[in-house]
């Protein structure tokens, strides 16, 4: 078990060296949320701490889901996947390595809006809750990215297209631009199905002192989503790996 964790860490280091600066990661992980946020913010008079919470939630979401969908198809195309499949590691170890690389990317980039907010005078009322939320959400969204990357293809663009088809609608139902309490009841029901809702809510709690759900519900929901995404990702990758060799 410890051996496998060490090997997952080796995979994460490799991912960091190779994939962080790949075009699709920068475009879909950094630029997309930034422009989406600017499009929403410009011309509207909204409190900065409300905006910052939404931006932070969206940043973690986009960055953490952007790394894994690049790794799997690229390694299928370059045949590196066969090397990993022949190595003494399980599919779960490979996926944990990829998740770890995504998580670190998500956390690192999420510091940008936090520092931006602090520079603009926003205070963090619950820093530990915020830190816990960011880490949990980064794991949760990285596992979600793994689900997208299980598509048996060597085309990064195909995986990215699939992931954007899911990610964009989620942004609009997760209380980022409109608080959950202001949504109609069907909208609130939809929002409760999105993991992005809970990290945005945690961010609001951390910056504004109040959220829609109790903190423990947010944390519990992120943990449940993480477990569900990870189990689904492992099953899907075990099934699709032979097709990608």
């Amino acid at each position: 078990m410890i051996d496998q964790m060490r090997r997952a860490y080796a995979i994460a280091k490799k991912d960091v060296r190779i994939y962080y600066l790949k075009g699709p990661v920068i475009i879909f992980g950094v630029l997309s949320p930034a422009f989406l946020f600017l499009a929403f913010m410009i011309g509207r008079d909204l409190p900065i701490d409300f905006l910052l919470a939404g931006l932070l939630g969206m940043t973690i979401f986009f960055t953490s889901t952007s790394v894994a969908p690049v790794i799997a198809p690229t390694e299928t195309q370059t045949r590196n996947l066969e090397r990993l499949a022949a190595a003494p590691i399980s599919v779960t170890t490979i996926l944990f390595g990829d998740v770890l690389a995504s998580v670190l990317f998500g956390i690192a980039i999420s510091l940008v809006p936090i520092l931006l907010g602090m520079a603009l005078g926003v205070t963090i009322m619950h820093p530990f809750i915020l830190a816990l939320g960011i880490v949990l959400a980064a794991f949760c969204f990285s596992a979600m990215g793994l689900i997208f990357s299980s598509a048996p293809t060597s085309m990064t663009s195909t995986v990215m297209m699939l992931s954007m088809m899911v990610k964009f609608p989620l942004v609009f139902i997760s209380g980022i631009f409109i608080p959950v309490q202001e949504l109609p009841s069907w909208g609130q029901a939809l929002a409760s199905l999105s993991p992005l809702t809970y990290i945005t809510d945690l961010c609001r709690y951390s910056f504004q002192g109040a959220g829609y759900y109790p903190v423990m519900v947010d944390i519990g929901a992120l943990l449940v989503f993480l477990a569900v995404f990870m189990v689904i990702a492992i099953k899907l990758h075990e099934r699709s790996l032979p097709k990608r060799l």
Binding site: T78, R79, E82, R83
Partner: peptide
């Protein structure tokens, strides 16, 4: 599989170094 694979070295048909 893990124990068995630890005893092997594999050179595939097409180079798959990173």
């Amino acid at each position: 599989p893990i124990r068995a694979k630890e005893t092997m070295g594999v050179v595939p048909e097409l180079s798959n170094a990173y």
